[in-house]
Design a protein around this nucleic acid. Sequence first.
DNA 1: TAGATTGTTAATCGATTAACAATC
DNA 2: TAGATTGTTAATCGATTAACAATC
Lengths: 206, 206
Amino acid sequence: VSGPLPPAAVSRLPRYLRFLEGVAPSVSVVSSEEIAEGSGVSAVQVRKDLSHLGAAGTRGVGYDATSLAKRIGKALGLEDRLGVAIVGAGNLGSALANYQGFEARGFRMVAVYDVDAKRIGPLPNGLDVRHIDRLAPDATGGQISIGIIATPSEAAQFVASLMVEAGIRSILNFAPTELRVPAGVAVRRVDLATELQILSYHLAAG
Amino acid sequence: VSGPLPPAAVSRLPRYLRFLEGVAPSVSVVSSEEIAEGSGVSAVQVRKDLSHLGAAGTRGVGYDATSLAKRIGKALGLEDRLGVAIVGAGNLGSALANYQGFEARGFRMVAVYDVDAKRIGPLPNGLDVRHIDRLAPDATGGQISIGIIATPSEAAQFVASLMVEAGIRSILNFAPTELRVPAGVAVRRVDLATELQILSYHLAAG
DNA sequence: TAGATTGTTAATCGATTAACAATC
DNA sequence: TAGATTGTTAATCGATTAACAATC
């Protein structure tokens, strides 16, 4: 009974998953109320979202934490440890490369890519910085599923096109730029200054 | 006629603003169609969002880029160059401290704060890393409007409470943690691994 | 059986889109 | 006046919440 999930549900599933991974295996059964509490969402919302995965709980009891986590992971396609490449080895790119959370939450970091020869070589954590020319060969056979753009704005569109060319179909863009990509390529954008501007509004408007 | 803006409109205004700042002053008048094109939103959506600011365009002509940018900036409360503090001088915190975009888009970086004495001192770009104990004194008189949490997850709640204590009422949280804050404090969260997991779903579901 | 909690169906709410009137 | 484009009102759509039936 699991058709396509509503976008809003998809964006909340990772939060539930994170909560579940935090409690299991010390706790075996959790209620929607507890999941809600732990992820800042209402309990009804949690149940509604989880119901899209097909019945996953036991009435009168709750959800088995471990099997629910597996189920969410499966729905999100996290079983395969998708390969992730970062383009741009500047401050942000390096910080992302050092971030433990990607590996911890189901991804496989492939390498960082840059145009600048001076930046090429291994990072302190062992991850390689390689020349951008190696992106396409490294991506063959679907070895890179997700590309992260951490370059200056001016380079973002060029890098995006390179990624698409290399067969990458999901892009996370940290440059504050509208990317043009063909249909079928998913782009998400994290715009840091925009986040501050939204907070600014809340201060101004009360 | 400008009551409170719908949240969805608030989150799009920064994108319009960025586009406008990119074209003005070389272009003086833009249509909703052009703004839409430049910010990846439909033209009707643009007009609807802008109408919340009160009539800002000229029928048959379009919007004056400069005055519209001012108007959006005013609505978002960007006129005052709000002070921003980063807590956590690790990889991510340092990358954020070096990021040009915050100053470029209307904010004033105050300093970075950390518990670790070894990290204290000026960064390459001139911004200070100070001991966390200095956060509260530095924040007096509203000198710090927005706090950015770039610490490990374990420290996030502690830092958030410290910020609230210091009178900071807007928090941008990069730690994948649910923060407990009193009513009246706005929290936005940027969860990097969650972004990848959402992209993963798109790959899995097609 | 009684208590607890899920999962579904219906109601409400808000956001997006469509249609069109206003006006430069 | 005719063409262009805004801004508003109404219609549609989707997401959230409420109510409740199902069932452990």
